[in-house]
């Protein structure tokens, strides 16, 4: 096994390999080609051996698998233990994972176990020589990750020239699905770990609440969204403006929690990701948990009474003032324009 391999962690979601994690195979192959290594995949979990057949036609050289009856979903400790076990034996160049809440937790713990580097939420990876600014020592063909810092105001390129493997979690949706190569035979390696009762007792899942997606906001051309500042009365105005503009109503998590609108209209980290032509943010301060789901909208208009609200930084038009005064006037103006 060549030590300059690039591995991909394949997420198992509801008994299936997640499409998002499969797309990382494409990137892994691109990097592995330059490094002169192969592409490996890691699948761990309970009753996962049967999933091998779902991925064996993809562009992977070897699948490492740990199938253990005691590995339960959301058990971060035992999962990171299992993945670390494979990595410490095989020592690839890097491991790519999809940036999910769970994925980031596993990645973080692996990095501590292996005393290696982790970079989360990468938006791309490439290979370049790394030159140490102090010693001048050059590490040839080193994986570099690009990621946003300072809430997206800057990007940073990071690299880990010496330690292996470099753990990178990658934002979903960046790469195309991998090629299938018909009739190819993938090597499958099975590993085992000890899962102690003690580890398992530490966390257990009591309940999972999924937000039902009755409304697909991603297709809306116009979204008028309300946040904590909007209040129940504000949402009436938001609804009015949205129907006037033939758009949809959106909301931040606090607004949904307060019961001002339904959870299926939530936008952001927990909710949907939208890119409408016009996004009107009403009483939304612009916390990253929300903006991650709307910052790629074509035109962003914000109405907020706090001139320092971060939402104004990512807005094309910002109106500073009381939304209960501003919105009715905007609605009135639009009505006049319409007639």
């Amino acid at each position: 096994m060549n030590s300059r391999d690039v591995y991909v962690y394949l997420d198992v979601v509801e008994g299936k390999i997640s499409i998002n994690s499969l797309s990382l195979i494409t990137k892994a192959r691109e990097l592995a080609k330059i490094l002169g290594g192969g592409v490996g995949a890691i699948i761990v979990g309970r009753d996962v051996k049967k999933l091998v057949k779902d991925v064996e036609e993809y562009d992977i050289d070897v699948i490492h698998i740990i199938d253990h009856p005691k590995l339960k979903d959301h058990d971060v400790i035992s999962y990171s233990k299992a993945v670390s076990e494979i990595l410490s034996k095989t020592r690839p160049e890097a491991l790519l994972m999809i940036s999910t809440a769970l994925g980031k937790e596993i990645a973080s713990r692996i990095a501590v176990r292996l005393r290696t580097a982790v970079a989360t939420d990468c938006i791309d990876l490439y290979i370049d020589d790394y030159k140490d600014p102090v010693s001048g020592e050059v590490s040839e063909k080193t994986i570099h990750c690009i990621r946003y810092v300072f809430r997206g105001e800057l990007s940073a390129v990071v690299a880990s020239p010496r330690q292996r493997p470099f753990i990178a979690t990658v934002r979903p949706g960046l790469y195309p699905a991998p090629q299938k190569i018909f009739g190819r035979k993938i090597e499958v390696k099975e590993w085992s770990i000890e899962v102690s009762e003690d580890d398992l007792m530490k966390t257990e899942v009591l309940e999972i609440q999924k937000i039902e997606r009755k409304i697909d906001l991603s297709k809306a051309k116009v979204i008028v969204a309300g946040g904590r500042g909007a209040k129940a009365e504000g949402f009436k105005l938001i609804q009015e403006l949205a129907s006037l503009l033939k758009g949809e109503v959106g909301a931040t998590r606090p607004a949904v929690d307060a019961g001002w609108t339904t959870p299926d209209r939530m936008i952001g980290l927990t909710g949907q990701t939208v890119k409408p032509d016009i996004y009107i943010a009403v009483g939304i301060s612009g916390a990253p948990q929300h903006t991650i789901g709307m910052r790629d909208s074509k035109i962003i208009i914000a109405i907020n009474k706090d001139p320092e609200a971060p939402i104004f930084k990512i807005s094309d038009y910002g109106l500073v003032g009381d939304l209960f005064v501003i919105l009715p006037k905007i609605i009135e103006r639009l009505r006049q324009l319409k007639s």
Partner: peptide
């Protein structure tokens, strides 16, 4: 182990 190579203004 993790080195920042450079930053870029978005």
């Amino acid at each position: 182990v993790l080195k920042t190579v450079r930053f870029k203004q978005i």
